[in-house]
């Protein structure tokens, strides 16, 4: 049996300088827990996997809205592992994430890795609508296969609009059934871990960051709009996370050092 589940959360200012979570709805394998945030004024929610998912054929959705002026962090207790499921001829699974961030609001969307297990077939999509003064820190990591196994089929799309205009649109396709060359020298070059770290902040409008490399297989690039994207490939999940953590620290410290308001 395949699962259809939609989890929802909504963050609002609580009127006392903090952020409340008036909507926190778990569904099926997507269990949301309110957790303590180390950041002042931030609410935090953690996605806790309640069962193994997605299996092929499952349709999972998370919808998160951060109202004007609210501050939210969403993270996860563990990696998400896409699995083949019981039937070999099953449909692909889908995992859709819809995020809306309002004026003056901030969202840190920091899930754990997405692992594409051998035999799995997952279409993942993340769609973000940012208000012009919204801030976003978002990390996505795709790990192609568990340790020592070939990857499953995985496509991901990350689409971000700011004030209704396109800011970033990226589609990646790996594994069986993906168009040829995905593992070759133009795309992955044999690497098995791919990651993106996006920081959108209106302060980049006046002070864009220069492009910069983090070693031979990771680069921080200023987008055409007020945001930077770190793109990295690595041999495995641990090395990938190390590069993305280094970039994240540098970016957040840079925002502080420039006496800009901290991304909270």
């Amino acid at each position: 049996m395949s699962v259809r589940a939609t989890a929802r959360l909504r963050a609002e200012p609580d009127g006392r300088g903090g952020t409340a979570l008036p909507v926190l709805e778990s569904d099926g394998p997507l269990a949301l827990r309110r957790t303590r945030s180390p950041l002042p004024g931030h609410a935090r929610a953690t996605v806790v996997g309640a069962m193994s998912a997605p299996l092929n054929g499952d349709r999972l959705t998370i919808e998160a809205e951060v109202a004007d002026g609210a501050h939210l962090t969403v993270d996860a207790a563990a990696a998400t592992v896409a699995l083949p499921g019981a039937r070999a001829d099953g449909e692909p699974s889908t995992y859709a994430v819809h995020l809306r961030v309002g004026e003056g609001a901030a969202l840190r969307w920091l899930p754990e890795q997405l692992v594409s297990a051998h035999g799995s077939d997952l279409r993942q999509s993340t769609r973000v609508e940012l208000a012009p003064t919204a801030r976003l820190l978002l990390r996505e990591e795709q790990i192609l296969g568990r340790h020592g196994e070939p990857t499953g089929a995985l496509t991901t799309r990350l689409t971000v609009h700011r004030g209704g205009r396109p800011l970033l649109d990226q589609q990646l396709a790996y594994g069986p059934g993906a168009p040829g060359g995905w593992d070759g020298p133009a795309v992955l070059g044999g690497h098995r871990a791919v990651g993106q770290l996006l920081l959108a902040d209106p302060s980049f409008e006046d002070a864009p960051l220069p492009a910069r490399l983090f070693g031979p297989t990771a680069a921080l690039t200023p987008l055409a709009g007020p945001a930077v994207l770190v793109t990295a490939v690595a041999a495995d999940a641990r090395l990938l996370r190390a590069v993305l953590n280094e970039a994240m620290r540098e970016l957040l410290d840079g925002l502080k050092a420039d006496h800009r308001q901290e991304v909270r």
Binding site: R157, T159, D169, Q170, Q171, L172, A173, P179, P185, A186, V187, L188, G189, V194, A211, L213, P216, T217, A218, A219, T221, T231, A232, V233
Partner: peptide, 18 residues
């Protein structure tokens, strides 16, 4: 419209430009 992208092309373009 598709948005298919190649991580290594994006990363190495920055290195090459420098």
């Amino acid at each position: 419209l598709p948005a298919a992208s190649a991580p290594l092309l994006d990363i190495t373009a920055e290195a090459h430009a420098a």
